[in-house]
Nucleic acid binder design. Structure first.
Length: 347
DNA sequence: AATTCGGGGAA
DNA sequence: TTCCCAGAATT
């Protein structure tokens, strides 16, 4: 029995997080949903989405039979929308192949879309009480510090080493508590900046602490600066309260969400609308401009406003959809688009 | 091995 | 501003 795991468990009993929403009740469905939402997303951000999602889809079969649009509407604003599409597909696989329940083995969990090695281990240990090693950002930070790993943690060699260390550290009992313990430890004590080493129960075995490297471990490789992309969007309205939205393709940014129709900056709006949507529009004017930062690029968008001229074809604008103001709250809208349309509703 | 996926909290 | 967060899928 390693002193490491026992120390973390003892620390967890006193200082751990025992009242997170997915811990009561701790069902496989709720644990799974939380793990997906928590991928690259902080706990405080997830909690309100988690509560609302469960209101809409209380059990796994409810999620499986829901339309994808309804799932994306609940996910809107949380980001990384492939998580929602994979979650939805995985629920349908569970109904079709696992009697409507989440499988209770590592290999079957990993087969489900959206579940990788670490998430599968988190679900297996927390929902089914079986020992399995997770390796998320918290665990990488804790283990790289304890063992004094100075290489960038993204590198293949360091990653493999960290998985080995994570496996080796596993206790044979209290599987769920240990997973929660090491993540809580990384999230609240062994933090990225200013870790609370003076309060740390394992400071005596921590290599980073002894070498004075807690500020430089975990090391990260430098990232290239993000490029900027320029686009135009159309705010197309009729005489009343309707406007036109476009459902974005599943691949690419904001996949599956509803947004304003986009066109290249060098295209003529009138010609574009006629050719792609069979719509005649009046003269355009700039409604607004905004910049939105993504992880790997910055989007600079110019929003052009125009009125749709009445024609026979205007009610069936190709891939686009007329949307009333009343429908807007039920649609999955990207955060900046939702903000933009909110300013519109005030007028 | 490198890129592509969002959005927000915190320093 | 910048960094990072209970990562996975794709190329």
């Amino acid at each position: 029995m390693s002193g490491f795991a026992e120390s973390l468990l003892a620390w967890f009993d006193v200082h751990g997080r025992h009242d997170l929403p997915w811990q009561h009740p701790r069902t496989p469905y709720r644990v799974w949903l939380s793990e997906i939402m928590l991928q690259q997303t902080q706990v405080t951000t997830v909690i309100p989405y988690f509560e609302r999602f469960l209101q809409a889809f209380p059990e796994l079969p409810d999620l499986a039979r829901a339309p994808l649009d309804a799932v994306l509407a609940q996910w809107a604003g949380l980001g990384y929308y492939s998580r929602a599409r994979n979650l939805h597909r995985a629920a349908q696989v569970c109904v079709a192949e696992h009697h409507g329940q989440l499988p209770a083995s590592l290999v079957d969990l990993i087969k489900l879309p959206g579940i990788g090695r670490s998430t599968a281990a988190a679900i297996l240990s927390q929902a089914f009480g079986q020992p399995a090693a997770v390796l998320d950002g918290n665990v990488k930070r804790v283990l790289s510090r304890v063992h004094g790993i100075t290489e960038p943690v993204e590198q293949r060699h360091a990653e493999q080493r960290l998985w080995q260390l994570a496996e080796a550290a596993l206790p044979t009992h209290r599987a769920a508590d240990y997973t929660q313990a090491i993540m809580d430890f990384g999230a609240t004590l062994c933090t990225q900046s200013q870790p609370a080493c003076l309060m740390c129960p394992i400071q005596s075995i921590c290599q980073a602490r002894q070498l004075g490297l807690t500020a430089t471990i975990p090391a990260k490789t430098a990232k290239a600066q993000v490029p900027e992309r320029h686009t135009r969007m159309l705010l197309l309205k009729d005489g009343g309260h309707g406007l036109i939205l476009e459902r974005r393709p599943e691949r690419g940014i904001w996949g599956g969400l509803y947004s304003l129709p986009e066109l290249p900056v060098d295209a003529d709006p009138g010609t574009w609308c006629d050719a792609h949507y069979r719509l005649r529009i009046g003269p355009t004017s700039t409604f607004s401009q905004f910049r939105h930062k993504f992880t790997h690029f910055t989007l600079r968008a110019e929003v052009l406003e125009a009125v749709v001229l009445p024609t026979a074809a205007m009610m069936d604008p190709g891939p686009l959809q007329w949307v009333s103001r009343a429908q807007l709250p039920t649609l999955g809208l990207p955060k900046p688009i939702k903000t933009l349309l909110k300013t519109l509703l005030v007028n």
